[in-house]
Design a protein around this nucleic acid. Sequence first.
DNA 1: TCCATTTAGTGGACTATGTCAACTTTTTTA
DNA 2: TAAAAAAGTTGACATAGTCCACTAAATGGA
Lengths: 148, 148
Amino acid sequence: MNLDENIIADIRQFNRFYTNILGLLDKHVLNTGYSFTEARVILEIGFLEQCIANHLVEKLDIDRSYMSRIIAKLSNDSLIIKENSALDSRTSLIRLTPKGTALFNQLNEKSDEQIVRLLQGLSQKEIKDLHTSMLTIQKKLEKAEGIE
Amino acid sequence: MNLDENIIADIRQFNRFYTNILGLLDKHVLNTGYSFTEARVILEIGFLEQCIANHLVEKLDIDRSYMSRIIAKLSNDSLIIKENSALDSRTSLIRLTPKGTALFNQLNEKSDEQIVRLLQGLSQKEIKDLHTSMLTIQKKLEKAEGIE
DNA sequence: TCCATTTAGTGGACTATGTCAACTTTTTTA
DNA sequence: TAAAAAAGTTGACATAGTCCACTAAATGGA
């Protein structure tokens, strides 16, 4: 494949850089009383509207038992409800309660504000370039996924 | 600033996507006996060749006390050595031992292999686009940093 | 059909990771 | 030069995540 050494170095540099960016963003999801991982779970349930635990396990790459506990906690806090599945009685259908939806919205707002803050100081043109670049990366790497 | 809602949504989508990519990559830094965070520290020391703990704290955004323990562990494992600083006797100059350098090289190789694996299946043109996009993102967001 | 396998989920017991506050020593600054 | 700030350490914790064994239901052949 003859991959240029410098390209690999740049990609790794980008990964370190973006790890920091995401780390900074994560820090500020806080003050909701829920951790970053819990927030990811709530967001994913919210986006899907309905799902089963195993989907969350696979999509978010979180250990089964850990997910079980997260769901138990969220359920206990009345953010989600579990309903028996008619199709597969090993599973429960999970969705947000109104309280959960409120938190979902709050998390979304906070996340949006963070992005706005992250972009402040950039021109429309720069934002457009950034956006295009992100779409490009996602498109290429979705094809790849060749990590395993 | 009139930021398009869709752009924000796409950026957030990208962030979720890239969180997963980085998570997958991180998992595989393992089998060295050191955690992701420890690996970050070793890599940073290796790149700098010499530094003080406080630099690592700020650069990697890790708590002081936690860093103190990480450094103690790495020192205990003879991966790094601490040398008294003549300029500021509160601090120590940290650098890799030969053993630490060996691990540094190993981590670098593993990381490079991961990137190669990540990119497998992409054409030269696609890799070039990916690379350009990453440089663009980094350049724009380095300017920004507007999170606090 | 039935039984071996796989899949979804749970819970105990644990380790690893990260945080907070208090403290020492040294440096900086007003 | 006294007060404040900075670098680092330590104890005591809290949070996050992992591993394993287990149950119950679903699935896939012979």
